[in-house]
Amino acid sequence: MKKLASGFYNRADVVKIAKELIGKILVTQFGEGITSGRIVETEAYAGAIDRASHAFNNRRTNRTEVMYKPGGVAYVYLIYGIHQLFNVVTNIKDVPHAILIRALDPIYGINTMLERTGKHRADYTLTKGPGNVSKALGITTSHTGVDLLGDEIYIAEDDFAVAKKDIIATPRIGVDYAGEDAKLPYRFILKDNPYVSGKKTQNTPKA
């Protein structure tokens, strides 16, 4: 595996980056425990112009301030007081783009993932959905701001190649509040992968 460099994250097109993350490997290494999985579902959030983004209209709060850092750091936030969601910050300083990692196909450290999630067997729910991704890989809000070029949390690539026809673009999930922006095809999934979240109707490309 080769760790992704800063140049991957510091580009302007967050939608393109979200698509290119499909097939890459998310790795966490906390102490002796290493866990990893192949990214099979992402969602792009285009910052100030995107009504679905936490940084819409350049909103800046204690929580969102990390989104304004140069690309290549983690943004982890809590939703419903339960789920901790891992995002990749992209673009340059003061342009708050981010990509939510929604699902992984587990590769390494599955026993550790089971311990963290309290599951007894490795079924598809282990890393299906963004809350499960963070829980299985041990990612919490304390990791907001972590440098993805370091060794604790990083994204890497190997010789796994994804055919363009196998990456499907759909609207994002759970952003109905965003009006017309909720319809944007900013979610990417790996076709027919069983770890992808969402209903069957949400995983079908629009005609």
Rank of each mutant, 00 (worst) to 15 (best):
S142Y: 15
Y80G: 14
N91D: 15
R102S: 01
V133P: 03
Y80M: 11
L78K: 15
G81Y: 09
R116I: 08
L104F: 11
V89K: 01
R102L: 13
G109M: 06
T141L: 07
I82L: 15
I82Y: 12
I107G: 05
D105L: 03
L78S: 15
L114D: 03
N132Y: 12
Y124D: 07
G145A: 13
T141S: 08
I139F: 04
H97K: 11
G150A: 10
Q84R: 12
G118R: 07
Q84A: 06
Q84K: 10
L100Q: 01
D123R: 11
G131A: 12
P106G: 08
D94G: 13
D147K: 10
E152L: 13
R116P: 03
D147G: 06
L85S: 01
L100R: 01
I99E: 03
N87K: 11
L114I: 15
E115P: 00
T144P: 06
D151L: 10
T90E: 08
R121F: 07
S134V: 00
L104H: 01
K119E: 10
Y108M: 13
Y108W: 12
R121N: 11
G129R: 03
L78I: 15
V89R: 06
L114T: 05
N91T: 08
L148N: 05
L104K: 00
I99C: 01
S142K: 15
T140E: 06
K93S: 14
T127E: 02
L85F: 04
A103H: 10
E115V: 06
T112K: 10
D123L: 09
V146W: 04
L78Y: 14
F86R: 02
